[in-house]
Simulated assay, not measured.
Amino acid sequence: MRGLIENIAAALARHGLILRGGFNFADGEEATPGLSGVVAKSVLLVGQAGAAPWPHFLRWREGQPQAIANPLDTWSRQAIGAVAETFGARAVSPSDRPYLPFQQWAMRAEGLRPSPLGILMHPEYGLWHAYRGALLFEDEISVQSAEAAIHLCDACVEKPCMKSCPVDSYSAEGFDYRSCLAHVRGPNGEPCRSEGCLDRNACPYGTAYRYPAEVQAFHMAAFAGL
Rank of each mutant, 00 (worst) to 15 (best):
S171A: 10
E62Y: 04
Y211M: 02
D199R: 03
P55T: 03
A52T: 04
I119M: 14
S142K: 05
G81I: 03
L152C: 08
P166M: 11
A91R: 13
F25C: 12
G126D: 01
R108A: 09
F25E: 08
P187K: 12
Q104V: 10
E147G: 13
I150A: 15
I150F: 09
W128T: 00
A84V: 02
A213M: 09
A52W: 12
A69G: 08
A106R: 01
M220L: 14
S164W: 00
P160G: 08
A10E: 15
E214R: 13
D73E: 13
P116I: 03
P71L: 12
A84G: 07
P53H: 11
A109I: 02
Q216T: 05
A222T: 11
R178I: 04
C161H: 04
G206F: 01
K159S: 11
W54V: 03
L12D: 00
I68D: 05
I141Y: 07
G22C: 06
D168A: 15
L198H: 02
F57A: 04
C192F: 12
P166T: 05
D176K: 09
F137Q: 00
V46Y: 15
P33Q: 13
R108P: 08
F23T: 06
G186W: 06
G37P: 01
R185A: 10
G174S: 05
E173A: 14
A217Q: 06
H122A: 07
E30W: 04
D139F: 10
G174L: 02
F102A: 07
R185E: 04
G196Y: 01
G174Y: 09
R185C: 07
E190P: 00
L35Y: 10
R14H: 12
M107R: 09
I8S: 02
Q104F: 13
G174D: 02
Q66I: 02
Y205H: 11
H129T: 00
L12T: 02
E138C: 08
A134R: 01
E85F: 13
R178L: 13
G133L: 11
A148P: 05
A91N: 12
S194I: 06
S115G: 00
T86V: 09
P212N: 03
R59G: 01
M220T: 15
P33L: 15
D199E: 07
R132Q: 08
G225R: 12
Y131C: 10
Q64M: 14
T32K: 15
K41N: 07
A82C: 10
C156K: 05
L120D: 10
P71R: 11
V43M: 09
G34C: 14
A84R: 05
T32V: 15
I5Q: 03
Y131M: 09
E124P: 00
F57C: 03
P212T: 00
R178G: 14
W54T: 03
C153Y: 01
Y211Q: 02
A182S: 13
A10I: 12
R2I: 07
L45I: 11
A109T: 04
L226Q: 10
L72G: 00
P123Q: 08
C203H: 05
G21E: 01
P65S: 11
C156W: 06
T32W: 15
D154N: 10
L4G: 04
P98D: 11
L127Q: 01
R61F: 08
G50M: 06
L45C: 14
R77T: 10
V46W: 15
P116F: 04
V167L: 14
R59S: 07
